[in-house]
């Protein structure tokens, strides 16, 4: 039990990362190359932290506000970016992260600048984080199996086909941005209420790269992709603790291996292999039936 308790912070971090990875996953699934997750998470974290410490509001209100503000921010970003694709979307959303970072660093009256906001009442624990991951994951699985998920998949694979089937790409990109913004905002709120303090640099370039890596490693079609990716990339650095300075090198190597040999990510590759096997097995059964 003691052994387990000492790992609680690690589990909490893994769950937080899963939520961020969900936010990144939903845009990538829809074929949007958004890097805005870190910015939406910062918005959510600061919203919750400010409401709790300066206005003394309950965590429930804080987290709801984080989620709603994240969704609004997602919608506001989606509209001007509707005409951008691929690397231009990435650059524009990267700028969003920079803007958020300079606001949290320089608007000292509200955000306490580089020192960050301290003394946030800890009101979310491991169980709360776990419930949040289950609820968001279930939600995304339901959406993924619906008409929205089908439209996301066609847009991601071939936008020309999507429009020729009558799918309105701006509409589904808007939905993806709103989902991504609200999930990341919610995750940021949970993080604020589970970690006593938040600082601007937590929500910077490092988070952006890490979250993107989780989805690339795990996969971007199945909802399990971000879960697996986040679990691996949270636990791996801990396992490599003994290697100290080589830690980043090994983490980078794992990622490069995944990109080269598993370009669809672990979960989606595994799913494809499993399905191909099942099809082959049913074929074999049929030919056997014919020859007998």
């Amino acid at each position: 039990m003691k052994f387990f308790l000492s790992y609680i912070p690690l589990f909490e971090l893994a769950l937080f990362n899963m939520l961020l990875a969900f936010s990144q996953y939903v845009v990538l699934r829809a074929g949007v190359f958004s890097l805005g997750t870190a910015a939406f998470a910062a918005l959510g974290a600061y919203t919750s932290a400010i409401l709790a410490t300066k206005l003394g509001m309950s965590p429930w209100i804080g987290m709801a506000a984080s989620l709603v503000l994240g969704a609004i921010a997602g919608a506001l970003v989606a509209i001007p970016l509707a005409r951008l694709r691929g690397v231009f979307q990435a650059l524009a959303t990267l700028a969003l992260v920079q803007i958020m970072l300079s606001i949290t660093l320089n608007w000292v009256d509200v955000t306490e600048g580089a020192l960050g906001i301290n003394g946030i009442p800890r009101s979310v624990g491991l169980f709360g984080m776990f419930c949040a991951v289950v609820v968001v994951g279930y939600f995304l699985a339901v959406i993924g199996a619906s008409s929205i998920g089908r439209a996301f998949d066609v847009i991601r694979e071939d936008e020309t086909v999507a429009v020729s089937l009558g799918i309105s790409v701006p509409k589904y990109h808007l939905i993806a941005f709103i989902l991504s913004g609200s999930i990341a905002g919610f995750a940021g709120g949970l993080h604020a209420f589970s970690s006593y303090s938040i600082t601007p640099n937590e929500y910077g370039f490092h988070m952006l790269v890490m979250v993107l890596a989780m989805v690339v490693l795990g996969g971007r079609v199945s909802v399990w992709g971000p879960v697996v990716g986040a679990a691996i990339l949270t636990v791996l650095p801990e396992l490599l603790r003994g290697f100290q300075e080589y830690r980043m090198v090994m983490q980078g190597a794992v990622l490069m291996f995944a990109i080269v040999f598993l370009p669809r990510g672990i979960v989606d590759t595994a799913k494809n292999i499993w399905r191909a096997r099942r099809v082959a097995a049913s074929e074999a059964a049929k030919t056997k039936a014919v020859t007998v």
């Binding site: 089908r150 439209a151 066609v154 694979e157 071939d158 079609v221 669809r264 989606d268």
Partner: peptide, 16 residues
């Protein structure tokens, strides 16, 4: 959509 099944590809056509 090469990775999707035949059925999924056809279902996509019903979007409208």
């Amino acid at each position: 959509i090469a990775d999707a099944t035949v059925l999924e590809n056809v279902v996509a056509g019903f979007h409208r």
